[in-house]
Design a protein around this nucleic acid. Structure first.
Lengths: 112, 112
DNA sequence: TCCTTAATTAATGGTATACTTAAATATACG
DNA sequence: CGTATATTTAAGTATACCATTAATTAAGGA
């Protein structure tokens, strides 16, 4: 199955350590491709491909200025990812709380 | 590059819509493989492989009871994912706030 | 024991990822 | 204009991912 929905693109983009490192760098402020690339041992084309993935997920924006591309981080996709995660964590916890409540009342009944 | 670190496994597991759907179902409460599978059109082995991915990421636990396997959701990996996302969102926002502050003071200086 | 049900493993195939080197593009600058 | 610099595109390769069907394992019930 080809997963092209937004959330899938975001999570897939975050699933690679190199791309997470790039985002870590960019979370400190915008930078050019070269500035980012010099922290990695992989080739420039490899970086370029990672940037394409990040861009497709909406996690970065590239703006051309002369022959330099400035990379800027965008947080909307992180918001989306976070929203999904938090929603499910919350739902599970609610269920878990309800279960505890249930077990508690069961114990009470048994005591009677 | 082979990404076997915990965070990569978690994000990769969340990158597939079928797996997110499985988690959505399980966030409402534990269920057997069969109960989960009947909501999907894909084959049982496909489900089984997705479950393996979710388990490897620590997102579910399988406990055998007779020939049924009960699937239980675990939230620790969601905590980890959330922590990464929130950290980077926060850092970017801090940087952004600092920039705004800077621009504000620049404008003040210009006014003088 | 034989059959049914639940789920996994094995084998396979198509497509996507993540890298590489070589070539192309685009801008600045002497 | 010619050359250096920054980055992307193209082409090729190895491996990983997601699905399939067929076979296997394991437990319960007639």
């Amino acid at each position: 199955m080809v997963a092209n929905d937004t959330l899938s693109l975001i999570f897939a983009a975050l699933a690679d350590p190199t791309r997470r490192n790039i985002l870590s760098r960019l979370s400190q402020g915008a930078a050019t491709v070269g500035e980012v690339a010099q922290h990695f041992e992989i080739s420039a084309p490899a970086i370029s491909q990672h940037l394409k993935v990040l861009e497709r997920a909406g996690l970065i924006e590239r703006t051309a200025k002369a022959q330099w591309r400035t990379l800027t981080m965008r947080t909307e996709p992180l918001d989306e990812a976070s929203a999904w995660v938090e929603k499910h964590r919350r739902e599970w916890n609610q269920h878990f709380d309800a279960l505890e409540e249930h077990l508690k009342s069961m114990t009470k009944k048994e005591e009677q």
